[in-house]
Every structure is written in C-alpha cells, then in structure tokens.
Amino acid sequence: MTGYLAFLKKEIFEYAKTYKLLILLVVFAVFGITNPLVAKLLPEILGSLVADGITITMPKATAYDAWTQFFKNATQMGLILTVILFSGVLSSELSKGTLVILLTKGLSRTAVILAKYTCMALLWTASIALCFGLTYVYTHYLFPADKVSNLPFSVFCLWLFGMFLLAVLLLSAVLTKSSYGCLLLTGAAVVACLLVNIIPAAHRYNPISLVTDKMGLIKNTIAVSSLFGAVFIAFLLALLFVSLAVLIFRKKQL
C-alpha cells in the first residue's frame, strides 16, 4: 500500500514535470470555452460567407448545439489526445530502465500497474470535469433559456468510456511494451467495438454505444435504460482488462 501511494505520487509528479498535465488541462479548458462559442457563432460565420442574392436560413443556435460540440470534441479530439499522451505510460520507463530499479528494490508489480491506472483515471476525470464545467457555465451564459435532458448521465457515459479506453490502453501497454504498439492495439480495440456495432443485437451491450448514443440521450430520443447494458459491460471489461494487465505484468520478463 505504501508502495502504491508512493508510486502514485511519483506518477502525478512525472505528468506535471513532463508538461502532460498542463497540455491535457489547457486543451480540455480550451474545448470547454470554445464549444458554446462555436455553436453560437456558427450561423453568423456562415451568414457572412454567403454572397449577395443567396440566402441560407440557419436555425437559431441553441444549447443543444453547444452540447453537440462538447460531445464531438471530447470524444474525438479529447480522447485521441488523451490516448496519445498516455501511450508511453509503460514503455518510456521500461526503455529507460528506471522502472526495473524500483522493482528490484521491492516495489510490487501490482502496485505499479494499479498506480498507473489510478493516475490516468484521475487525470482523465479532472480533464473531463474541467471541460464539462466550462461548457456548462458558458452554455448557461449564452443560452440562458435552453434546457437539455439527461446531461449528467450522458457525461457519465462519456467518462466511463474514457475509463474503459484507458484500461484497454494499459493492457496494450503491458502486452506490447512499446508506445506505438500500445496506440495500435488501442486503435484496433476501438475498431473492433465499431465492427461489433454492426450486429444490431450487440448494440445494447457494446461499450462504444456509450459515446455514439449520447446525442439521442440529450434529445431524449433514446431512453436512459437502454444504455444500462453497455454501462455494465464497459465497467466489467475495464475491471477485467486492468486485472489482466496486473496478472500479465507480474509474469512478464522485463
């Protein structure tokens, strides 16, 4: 337990010193501010581009558009950036040989993997909370009258999918021991999820439904209960992947 806490502290300190923490927080903060702004200004920008004689009627921007921007940015750019930043989670320390020193001094391998996952989870939670908070405040400022439904649950789905993806990333990192292999395997896992989604019956239980169905949730065209299966499976898989990562890493030749 002391090993776990010490290693967790070291991990957080490392992310701060390598500026990864700064990048993550600034990017998510910028997304958080620009989401409502882009939603608000898009009709005007398009309107100013139109030449004389042609009229485009754009519907007036609503809070719904701001949240569309939020979920689009957070799931695409946000998750991609997170995965790329964390891709060296194991490989950099293995290639430099700094981890081996700690392990030979008696730090347990389980503690290493668990501390790494905890640290990634903490950073992801902080980033998504920051992005959500800023979008919420500014959406309220720009579109005071509008209401969207199921907002907390859809953000929770996005957060859970991020946690699931980080578990996949950690397992890939343990399996491949290189940052490119880790990225490749994580990408392959997402593609596999997308492919499984082709089967209609699997859609309810596929973790990727957590990020593909959010717009329906906000529009209230999809019932919250239809995603419970996917939430449960994503949670189970994340747990399974982290445990697998621990088990494999304990046996792994470094």
Binding site: V26, A29, V30, I33, T34, P36, L37, Y138, Y141, L142
Partner: peptide
C-alpha cells in the same frame, strides 16, 4: 463575448 474571449486568450 468578452467573458469567453478573455479566458481563451489567457490560456
């Protein structure tokens, strides 16, 4: 838009 632009510029 100033309350949105100022933090953006600061960041």
């Amino acid at each position: 838009y100033l309350p949105l632009l100022i933090p953006l510029v600061i960041l």
